[in-house]
């Protein structure tokens, strides 16, 4: 049975991924950003909420390398704290939407009876407008979540779920397409022929082989979630004004664009870098997994 599976592509994939310079650069940038925001509190110990009234709106100085905001809070510390939240939101929301999308995609592609129903459900979700839904979700669930997780974790869970639950549809469609194609391949037919249970076929044969579209949409999903979070912050539906995230910092700083452009450029640049990095990474993954692409 294992003989019938195509050869494990791991080694080739890694070789091809390494050859994709953009992808390597993207991965490096992302790795650096993640490390920076994770180790940030140890490297730069200023409290992002500490107000130094005398140093309001200060430019870069040894005490505040990136300057301070309108209340005198250290920008570097706020960027590090904000990045932790933004990246965490991106990854967590991606995980939610990916899990849901993959589940629905695989079920729809694999079980013909569920297909029509699940795809209509997907259409339905695509039809529901995101912003009002997110707003309603925020209003409905903020209080219960605050009680069970505390005010900051509560809103985090809320934003993650709101983004995740409204962005799984493309993944579901892509995965379903891939599964449909895969289902007719010999090794699946063979596995079914020898009586392997459905669950085992899915976990052992289907999932590993649809990994590439899943990984690619994971990369793009992370970027999307970070951007959605910033849009929510701008509309006042996301994290509250006193809770730094890159999106929040950027939308607060647009007011000061003419007076203190640096305040907007830093969070804006970091969002940009993250999204770019993630996209190049996704590109590299797609090319690396694409068998036909190599043959050219």
């Amino acid at each position: 049975m294992t003989l019938l599976s195509p050869p494990r592509p791991g080694h080739t994939v890694w070789r091809r991924f390494r050859r994709h310079r953009g992808a390597v650069a993207g991965a490096a940038v992302l790795g650096f950003l993640v490390l920076a925001v994770l180790l940030g509190p140890w490297l730069w110990s200023l409290d992002p909420t500490y107000i130094d009234v005398r140093a309001r709106s200060a430019g870069p100085s040894p005490a505040h390398p990136l300057g301070t905001d309108q209340l005198g809070r250290d920008m570097l510390a706020r960027l590090l704290a904000g990045g932790r939240v933004s990246i965490a939101v991106g990854l967590a929301a991606m995980a939610v939407s990916l899990g849901l999308g993959t589940l629905i995609g695989v079920l729809a592609g694999f079980f013909r009876r569920l297909d029509s129903l699940l795809m209509r459900l997907t259409d339905l979700f695509l039809a529901l407008p995101v912003i009002p839904l997110v707003l309603v979700a925020v209003m409905l669930f903020r209080e219960p979540l605050n009680h069970s997780f505390g005010p900051q974790a509560g809103i985090f869970v809320l934003v993650v779920l709101a983004i995740g639950l409204t962005s799984w549809m493309p993944t579901a469609r892509v995965v379903r397409g891939a599964v449909l194609e895969l289902k007719e391949r010999e090794f699946i037919l063979a596995a079914r022929g020898i009586g392997t249970p459905d669950a085992a076929i899915i976990t052992r044969h289907v999932l590993p082989n649809v990994a590439s579209p899943i990984l690619v949409s994971a990369a793009l999903g992370t970027a999307n979630a970070i951007l959605t979070e910033s849009a929510l912050s701008f509309l006042g539906l996301g994290f509250p004004p006193d809770f730094p995230t890159w999106g929040r910092l950027l939308s607060d700083a647009t007011v000061y664009l003419q007076d203190y452009p640096g305040r907007a450029l830093w969070p804006g640049g970091l969002i940009c870098l993250t999204v770019l990095g993630v996209n190049y990474l996704g590109d590299g993954l797609r090319d690396a997994f694409d068998i036909r692409g190599d043959a050219r």
Binding site: G22, A223, L227, S230, A231, F234, G247, L250, S251, T254, L257, A264, G268, I271, C272, T274, V275, L276, N279, Y280, D283
Partner: peptide
């Protein structure tokens, strides 16, 4: 690729202002 990605990654509330 680079230009379109940068365009995509800048939130409109920033690029608009």
């Amino acid at each position: 690729t680079f230009v379109t990605m940068v365009g995509y990654s800048v939130p409109p509330f920033f690029s608009g202002v």
